[in-house]
Nucleic acid binder design. Structure first.
Lengths: 189, 189
DNA sequence: TCGTTTGCAATGCGATTGCATTGGAGTTGG
DNA sequence: CCAACTCCAATGCAATCGCATTGCAAACGA
């Protein structure tokens, strides 16, 4: 076997550069040359690890999806209600990690409107999220349409994420809104 | 005065083509040539009415903003609560007109994350919307933090619009969710 | 040592981009 | 009639795009 490098690590570095570009200047700024420059590598290397631009973008999408999932998985809480709240807040661009990932998510979310290949994994991820939220809601407040409340909560934090990203809602206000929304779900119907 | 045409009408026709392109294939499909082809005119004409691509995109943004505002203005209801509900439903891609405009709004919304010049008018429009919603909420249910509930409602329907657009939530379910959310706001805290 | 395979850098190519330029058809005030 | 002005079609141009091709350095098995 000749010269060997960590293939996955190289792909991850390039995918990172793609995400940074999307976060800073949007999806339309992603070109092979820009990605190579952002990653500090040659364009030949980018082409060596990704056969086509589209494959690179899909990899970047899976990369941030996995990263968001990892952040969710790292959330710990004693109380189920606190766990629920922590997860919802984790979706908002409050922490540095979330602030870096949220613009990328928003860009892919909008792209999914006109690109069915993005919509499919996005729907699956959202579906799992709804199922998890519904389970948590049932645990905290048995009875009632937990799945409906889970879908409503997810739509709410998704929209709130965008509002915070465009500077419409300051982060502290977003936390306040989430808390009130959550209270409404868990106490009222 | 030499040959005269309806300048605003011509700009509107081209702006319409831009919106159709965005709705069908996203912002990145907008090029002078594609717009000209979609509008059924020559590229020279597009250039004659818009000095730069950016100006054309901003015009398209104002165009759909005005159109959404017009749809809101056309909503009539006897009951303030019914008025509130009708406006919220009008934001979702349920009617043919809203279905055509929502993908365009979503594209500009995502673009506003990385383009401050879009964020400013978007924030102003959202601010007016929140003020109106808060007024209606106060009218239906005096007392309580109406502005907070208005912001929450707006974030909720914004997120729900995206969920419907990507096929995550069917339209009927969206109506059901809006009704329940509204009931929560107007009856509980 | 030598051939083979991997990992890339470099360059080229056709297509497409936004925009500038040119020129002419059509209309009207002087 | 004609100079002037609007409207716009056509074409050109430099830049950038995604992708293909080429070639070579490095590393290992034989």
């Amino acid at each position: 076997m000749p010269k060997q490098v960590d293939h996955d690590e190289r792909r991850r570095q390039i995918g990172d550069a793609v995400c940074r570009l999307i976060a800073a200047r949007g999806l339309e700024a992603v070109s092979l040359r820009h990605v190579a420059a952002e990653a500090g590598v040659s364009m030949g290397r980018v082409q060596h690890y990704f056969a086509a631009k589209d494959e690179m973008l899909m990899f970047a999408f899976e990369l941030i999806s996995d990263r968001v999932a990892a952040r969710f998985g790292a959330v710990r809480a004693d109380d189920p209600a606190q766990h629920l709240r922590a997860i919802l807040l984790e979706l908002l661009p409050l922490s540095p990690a979330a602030r870096a990932e949220a613009p990328v998510l928003a860009a892919f979310l909008a792209q999914a409107v006109v690109e069915p290949r993005l919509g499919e994994p996005l729907r699956r991820g959202n579906g799992e999220m709804v199922a998890w939220l519904a389970g948590m809601i049932t645990e905290v407040r048995p009875g009632g349409d937990a799945e409906r409340d889970a879908m409503a909560l997810l739509a709410f934090v998704d929209g709130l994420m965008l509002q915070v990203l465009i500077g419409q809602v300051p982060p502290e206000a977003a936390v306040y809104l989430v808390d009130h929304q959550l209270a409404g779900v868990l106490t009222c119907g």
